[in-house]
């Protein structure tokens, strides 16, 4: 009896962790997309996704359908990402590392403040389109709800679509080429500038999917609601190596599960610190990321 309760608790945490983890992986993926195309670590990624979600989800007030609002959010993310690259990021290419970091950190606090100014800092709760009550097995909850299942499927589909786009389409080839060797790509007739904008637009759209999922349900939508998941996403991206989308997803799931266990068995206050320790340990073992093939420059 006790063993079964214990097993059920472990299963609960595992499934809950995976659910949270795929979303972390999605955020990590959106960071990797931007990193690969422009070598900028976008600190405003979470805030931009949050902002796009506000634009879409406040349309619920006009009695629009949940799915329509979600679609508007993703479209808003696409536009916001492209516009940000054009206006804020373009002047920064070739500058010292610190310049894009500072600008994106400034953009992060600016976006959060503007969102609070427009929509107030109070969380608004969005009803999930599917039930978030756990499936039962032998009268015990399993840690997986219909909405959680939807989260996992949605996140994995977005990742698969991105992977297919990059791997098998001409557009994907051009995107990879302009990231890897912009000069050569330009000589071969690829419109590199346009593709960099597209890279940011795509990445922010992916981020917006994650933000819509997070804002639906218990967490609610508020200006800082992406901060924690952004940090977890960064840790996942760094552990996986900022070059590897698959690694980012896997690392995201691992972090999600670990943090879920820490929350359950220790204390939610320690989750952030455990994340930092995971990051430190993995970087000490393999500074270029666990899933990156090429070693970086050694001095």
């Amino acid at each position: 009896m006790i063993a079964s309760i214990f097993a059920s608790r472990i299963l609960n945490d595992l499934l809950g962790g995976i659910t949270a983890g795929v979303v972390i992986g999605l955020v990590a993926l959106s960071l990797v997309l931007i990193w690969q195309s422009t070598h900028v670590l976008n600190f405003a990624q979470g805030a931009m996704a949050m902002f796009a979600t506000y634009i879409g989800m406040t349309q619920l007030d006009h009695h629009l359908n949940y799915w329509v609002c979600a679609l508007i959010s993703v479209a808003a993310g696409f536009v916001l990402g492209g516009a940000t690259e054009r206006v804020l990021v373009r002047p920064l290419y070739g500058k010292a590392d610190i310049n894009p970091i500072v600008v994106m950190v400034g953009f992060l606090s600016l976006l959060e403040a503007i969102a609070a100014a427009i929509w107030s800092g109070t969380p608004r709760f969005i009803d999930p389109p599917f039930s978030s009550i756990f499936f039962q097995s032998d009268g015990a909850p399993t840690g997986l709800s219909p909405f959680a299942l939807f989260q996992i499927i949605a996140a994995i589909s977005v990742m698969a679509a991105t992977a297919l786009l990059f791997r098998f389409t001409k557009l994907g080839l051009q995107l990879r080429a302009s990231a890897l060797a912009p000069e050569v790509a330009r000589l071969l007739g690829v419109r590199v500038n346009r593709l960099l904008t597209l890279g940011w637009a795509l990445s922010t759209a992916v981020g917006a999917v994650a933000a819509v999922i997070i804002s639906t349900g218990d967490t609610g939508l508020y200006p800082a609601n992406m901060e924690t998941v952004f940090i977890a996403g960064f840790i996942a991206a760094a552990i996986g190596g900022l070059e590897s989308p698959g690694g980012a997803l896997l690392a995201g799931v691992v972090i999600g599960v670990v943090m879920q266990f820490v929350n359950d068995y220790f204390n939610s206050g320690y989750a952030g610190f455990v994340g930092v320790i995971l990051l430190i340990v993995s970087l000490l073992i393999r500074p270029q990321g666990l899933f990156t093939k090429n070693a970086q420059r050694r001095v």
Partner: peptide, 10 residues
């Protein structure tokens, strides 16, 4: 650069 900044943020 950015990795370090991210780690300090975390």
């Amino acid at each position: 650069g950015p990795y370090l900044a991210g780690m300090t943020l975390a």
